[in-house]
Amino acid sequence: MPCDRHAHLLSAYLDRELPDDEHEALARHIADCPDCATLVSDLRQTSSAVAGLGREPMPEGLSQRLRQSLEQASDASAPSPSQRPVPALSAAIVPRHWTASALMRQAAVLVFACLLSALATWWFVTGSARDTLLARDLLSAHLRSLQQESPIQVASSDAHTVKPWFAGKVDFSPEVRDLAAQGYPLLGGRLDTIAGRRVGALVYKRRLHLINVFAWASDAPDTPPTLTMRNGYNLLSWIRGGVVYTAVSDLDGDELKQLSQML
């Protein structure tokens, strides 16, 4: 068979369904290739032979039957004026029906409002508490990693080893870069648990300071880094590309910010 590469495109070429540049490239090829030119003309003939068949004509009376069945269907779903119940009856039925649905609507609005206020209260009461809880959890995880023999499960300074290691272990893909040249060598990665949730941890070093960069998926929009202090440790949090990052270290806050900018 001639020109394997093009055969499957010739049909789309005939229909002018290829992008302009591909179409022109193929047109140039066809001009030079007698096999493809023959195939194109064969396909064109086949195509017009089928087109020449035209539509299969409708059976006599089908159009009328279609109209009738649609009329019947619309009569069934929305009664026409002539088929409506007599006025006395409709007066008795329609308002009751209306009242019931209006009551339901009011009840729904009420329930919704209650839910909303309860949710707002809960948010207000627990919001700030939750942030401190999270910070405490992150700090504990950082301290835990310092006490362990090794803070890392995959030891590598190669970002292309560490990043794929997380695939299948967490539901997101963290930014992993080796910043040895900038004075922040990558030691490796680890899985950890924060607030009952599995997170990824990237471990960097700055001189003698160890830095844990925790990462987990989030729907929240991107936010710039914010620094908080807790028990003498710095916690720097930011959100980028649907991933929340928090760097925890006893390193100076400014140097931690430098790391966040390079990640």
Binding site: H8, S11, T46, S47, V50
Partner: peptide, 16 residues
């Protein structure tokens, strides 16, 4: 759609 149409026309051409 593109590949089925291409294959369909080639089959038709051969059958004809």
């Amino acid at each position: 759609v593109m590949s089925r149409l291409s294959r369909g026309r080639l089959l038709l051409r051969r059958a004809l």
